[in-house]
Amino acid sequence: MTGQPAPRDAFAVLREATQARVALGRAGDALPTSRELAFRVAHAAARDAVHAPLDTAALREALGEALEVRSAAPDRAVYLQRPDLGRRLAEGTALPSTSADLAVVLGDGLSPRALQEHGPGTLAALRERLPGWSIAPPVVARQARVALGDEIGARLGVRAVVVLIGERPGLTAADSLGAYLTWAPRPGRADSERNCVSNIRPPHGTDYAQAADTLAGLLVSARALGASGVALKDQGAKPPTAGLDRSPPKEIR
């Protein structure tokens, strides 16, 4: 690799103050090769996280008993362009009716890798914290958006659904898992009726125990209230935002 690293003494004050890519140096008016390649390494990890398919066999092995479904989006390209299809079950999907309190859906979302790495651990931690709850068999869902959990929850006949789903990869993290709780799930629920715990990604982000503590607390409150979402706002719900709103976006909804 070529490229001139900047003199550390003069620009260290910038680099030490932020994780942003400051004081990168220059090759003419462009970035030095080393900086250019470092950016590509991060982008490649994010791209691969979006497109590498979920290894459902490995995931089911980690989970033990599990059901498996897919959304109405037949492949990744359609999934990315038609979020509406990712929110509906594929035609002919069979799910058993249960009378469980809770279902947990494990969806690939925008980072199958995040689900693969952090889904089983998060589920196990959540189970430990809900001793009095009956929990339906976990459902592995491919080409899934968050709202797919509404239809799955309704078919299973559960009182609440938690969707664990891969978040959109960024350049700093390609393996963040999100968890979305919806009380009384049924198709048509609004995003404002959910509560979210994001950036589950130990050791850098939220760890499984913290995420499960928050989720279990939200579930208990939701059961007492008979609702989730903005009603539970103080415990971590964020209001839904339109696409241009420049708060950190959540395209996995």
Partner: peptide
Amino acid sequence: TVPGADDVMLHYQSLSFSDVLTVRQ
């Protein structure tokens, strides 16, 4: 323009400071 084309808050990629130097040049 954002540092190194990477917005570390909004998690998306825009142009870098040096990109604008390139366009101007």
